[in-house]
Design a protein around this nucleic acid. Structure first.
Length: 859
RNA sequence: GCCCGUGUGGCGGAAUGGUAGACGCUGCAGACUUAAAAUCUGCUGACCAAUCGGUCGUGGGGGUUCAAGUCCCUCCACGGGCACCA
């Protein structure tokens, strides 16, 4: 009975996807096995903020993770693939205010909606381990961790600056300050000092930096970003004697330029400035001028260097020379010692400042090449520098540090840009800090039996500020030490705190985590083998999580120091933008192309400007709704599309045609499966491996190519090059189609190829593959089956195509057996008419033969 | 300014130093159809050539090599991060 492939009923993706989605969920098909007889693989995508709707960028992120997870499952790994919600944070409070709802309700409502969207994609999550950080179990445990770290001295309290709204009388988050004004009151925001909690991340600066080298599965750009952020500089401090009798300590990474110093510069916030400004009106005026917001901002933007002479001088440590001391706006108090010596001949900033204030310039480095342009910042030899003369820069640096230390003028020093992490937030919707303030005992950490400190639900956002401050019933407690009346800390923790250890929580079953993290589980699963997320977290989240891991190790809670073995940062999903000439954004369906090929609005025929591809965003009206896509084309088509064509680390250009193409491909393989089934292709017809010599040449070729496909696709998954895996799989489908009419007479061969093809494709489009798997009578679930293996013997061929070049240019091809001798190959190659024509009467100077690769004649 | 990326057809992109453009999108043609859609099959870097074939071609210039998209030097453009960090 013949079946026409074009007559096959279209693939009913809705029915099939719904069937398997429910099956997987109801049967907990992806529940973590925790089978220690197998090697483990922890696949994690950065968890989601429950903002309200899933974005197509999430879909791409999670599809990449899911492909890895399913691929590893099929490879026989024991996979942990959890999912959760980064559920605390400011937007919930904003929404509460706007919609008169409660942050908790808003958050859980959003989680409910987004969970449904995520589940519609058929991701292989272990939903039994799902967690939201606003869950009491989670943040209760977090409070215990806080206390351990406090005990260990890793958390401390000090005064720090906050954004203060003087009208609403409350602290504002940075995102609530718009153009220097409070978002609600519109009042000019002030800086105010408040006591706050800090994390001693700087204690780990050196380790955070040096460990980066060992993270060889992280991309260089992320490592560089972290490196710059940590900002280590090595140098030397030098003490100067000030004319007022004070000692002034400066820091320099280039102490070898000391003999070129012509002035010193100190930060406007330097203690010395405070001291001398009391009696100096000019300096007071100068400092006032720096404080005026708009002016100082302008100076910052233009990088204009301004300063003022203090009238003080300092003695050069090696020369009989007094150097003037300036206050300069480009010297930062929170870096180094807040004071520098300036060498204008060899530093751009020092030079600009010296020119402006007519300060002397002393050259001390002679360039290696003829160039006398100042400032000179390149390599060279030291001159005019007494005992350093004639040395290279590096030699001079070593020597002067040695001498400075010998003469006790200063010491070798290392500074970091990294600052301690402020973790207090004057907010309701966060993890309460488990501390009380007792008038008698002072700062009192709570005891374990007092935990968890639960956020009170009965609060109101009608008043400004943090509602916890006004919730007296919650706030007032008795001191755990003396029993007197005390107050709770009303600040909550930064949400980055919540996300710094969630990957550890996932290692255990939820119900096992009442007490503290389970070391055994963590040792089983950590480090995360594949961590996938956006590049926007390259610095903060990833640095905090690395720090947290080290801190927990030092508290003896866990045994590892680096949490993420392989980090993968995927690109953004972008889409074309359209706007009217007045700048108003337009939806794609408001735009059409006219006869001349120009774009115009459909309604008013106004001219439309087609913009660049930009990250999808609501404001630019270039978003695509994942729900609509799943409805219209199915989850498999969407999954396939977001990893097709573009390498996952690059920005992905959304196009409706591309999506349509993926949908067609899904239908194409469906027709193939149905056609093959009708020809008797199924599990029971797989007898054994086939003797390919009995096949005709076309089938031999298809079979051999298929082994190559297994190799290529496997390597592509291994290297997260899903776009290549898709390309190879498409090629395979084309190959199978070309011999489809021979299926009936080669049932065993086609059964084997179809079986393995389904396995190879399943990580990307699991629903259709699972359905075909069942339809063709294979047992178990597709992800539980062994990954196909290729046979090396099929990768080599009896006949190869050998390109023949003359002077490196292709002039012909030989279709030959690779067993010929070099001499025979040269002879055959020279007999090719085209090659003959090229060489003509010329002498061959050299013959090159790379076995199986190429022949090249040099004439 | 400093650091890190990236430049390949109309487009997204392939290519252990060894046939540049796999695979897909778009476009063109053929088959099927009363017709259209869908589907199946071809072709699709530019220029020249009826054909065989040839010339050019991976941001620009130079170099190494029998052979360069790939390695080295240099310049240009774009994207990202940090930004007065002594």
């Amino acid at each position: 009975m013949s079946i026409d492939i074009s007559e096959i009923t279209p693939y009913n993706f809705k029915e099939v996807e719904e069937k398997w989605r429910s099956f997987w969920l109801n049967n907990h098909s992806f529940k973590t096995k925790n089978d220690s007889s197998k090697p483990k693989c922890y696949v994690l995508e950065m968890f989601m903020y429950p903002s309200g709707k899933v974005h197509i960028g999430h879909i791409r992120n999670y599809t990449i993770g899911d492909i890895i997870s399913r691929y590893k499952m099929a490879q026989g790994f024991d996979v942990l693939h959890p999912v959760g919600w980064d559920a605390f944070g400011l937007p919930a409070e904003n929404a509460a205010l706007q919609h008169k709802s409660h942050p908790k309700n808003w958050t859980y409502q959003n989680i409910k909606i987004m969970k449904k969207q995520i589940q519609s994609m058929g991701f292989s999550y272990d939903w039994d381990r799902e967690i939201a950080t606003c869950n009491e179990n989670y943040y209760g445990l977090q409070q215990k961790i806080f206390l351990k770290m406090y005990e260990k001295g890793l958390i401390y309290r000090k005064e720090a600056e906050v954004n203060w709204d003087p009208v609403d009388n409350c602290v504002l988050a940075n995102e609530q300050v718009i153009d220097g004004r409070g978002w609600r009151s519109g009042a000019l925001v002030e800086k105010k000092m408040l006591p706050q909690w800090f994390f001693k991340i700087t204690k780990y600066a050196e380790e955070l930096l040096s460990n980066l080298n060992a993270l060889n599965e992280w991309s260089d750009n992320v490592k560089t970003m972290q490196k710059n952020w940590i900002g280590k500089s090595e140098g030397c401090s030098i003490n100067f004697h000030c004319s007022n009798g004070d000692n002034l300590e400066i820091f320099s990474t280039r102490p070898e330029t000391l003999f070129g110093a012509t002035y010193l510069a100190i930060s406007p916030e330097h203690p010395l400035v405070k001291k001398i400004s009391k009696t100096n009106e000019k300096i007071q005026k100068f400092l006032e001028s720096l404080k005026i917001g708009s002016v100082s901002k302008q100076i910052l933007d233009t990088q204009e260097k301004i300063g003022i002479d203090t009238g003080l001088t300092a003695k050069h440590p090696f020369l009989d020379k007094q150097l003037p001391i300036y206050i300069a706006n480009f010297v930062l108090m929170d870096y180094g010692t807040g004071a520098i010596f300036a060498c204008p001949a060899h530093d751009k900033r020092d030079y600009d400042f010296a020119i402006k204030y007519k300060l002397p310039i002393q050259e001390i480095i002679t360039p290696q090449t003829a160039s006398n342009q100042l400032p000179y910042e390149g390599d060279g030899w030291i001159i005019n520098s007494d005992f350093l003369n004639g040395l290279t820069i590096q030699e001079a640096r070593n020597k002067i540090i040695k001498i400075v230390e010998e003469k006790r003028l200063g010491t070798k020093k290392i500074f970091f840009k990294l600052r301690d992490w402020g973790i207090s937030r004057q907010r309701y919707w966060g993890c309460p800090i488990p501390i009380v303030y007792c008038p008698k005992c002072g700062i009192v950490p709570l005891k374990e039996e007092n935990l968890p400190v639960i956020l009170p639900k009965d609060i109101t956002f009608e008043n400004v500020g943090n509602p916890l401050v006004k919730h007296l019933k919650w706030k007032q407690v008795s001191c755990p030490i003396c029993g007197e009346d005390a107050n709770r800390e009303t600040d909550t923790l930064d949400t980055f705190f919540d996300s710094s250890w969630y990957f550890l929580y996932f290692c255990s079953e939820r119900n096992d985590l009442k007490n503290i993290l389970n070391k055994q589980d963590i040792n089983r699963w950590m480090p995360v083998d594949h961590y996938i997320g956006g590049i926007e977290h390259a610095i903060l989240h990833l640095l905090y999580a690395r720090f947290f891991t080290k801190a927990l190790a030092d508290c003896n809670i866990i045994d590892l120091r680096e949490p993420f073995k392989n980090l993968f940062t995927q690109g953004m999903v972008c889409c074309a933008t359209y706007r009217k000439q007045n700048g108003e954004w337009l939806f794609p369906n408001e735009v059409q192309q006219n006869k001349e090929g120009n774009y115009e609005t459909i309604s008013t025929k106004e001219k439309v400007i087609v913009g660049h591809l930009e990250k999808m965003s609501k404001s630019k009206k270039n978003v695509v709704d994942p729900d609509f896509i799943v409805e219209t084309y199915g989850a498999d088509a969407l999954r396939l599309f977001v990893v097709s064509d573009t390498p996952p680390e690059k920005d992905f250009p959304w196009s409706d045609e591309g999506l349509e193409g993926c949908w067609k491909f899904i239908n194409r393989i469906w027709r193939m499966f149905i056609y093959l089934k009708s020809k008797g292709i199924n599990a029971s017809n797989i007898k054994m491996d086939i003797d390919i010599s009995s096949l005709n040449i076309d089938l031999q070729k298809v079979y051999k190519n298929f082994h190559k496909t297994i190799k290529d696709v496997t390597e592509s998954y291994e290297n997260k090059m899903m776009n290549k895996a898709v390309a190879f799989l498409r090629e395979t489908v084309n190959n199978i189609y070309s011999v489809l009419e021979q299926a009936e007479s080669n049932i065993c061969l086609f059964s084997i190829v179809t079986r393995d093809f389904i396995k190879l494709l399943a990580p990307i489009t699991p629903h259709i593959c699972q359905e075909a798997w069942q339809l063709l009578g294979f047992d178990k679930l597709i992800h539980e089956n062994d990954w196909p293996k290729f046979d090396k013997k099929y990768l080599t061929s009896d006949i190869i195509n050998l390109p023949i070049q003359v002077n490196g240019k292709l002039r012909g091809n030989l279709e030959i057996s690779p067993d010929y001798t070099e001499e025979q190959i040269f002879e055959m190659a020279l007999n090719l008419s085209n090659v003959k024509n090229y060489i003509g009467m010329k002498t061959i100077r050299k013959k090159i033969h790379v076995k199986g690769k190429i022949v090249n004649f040099v004439i």
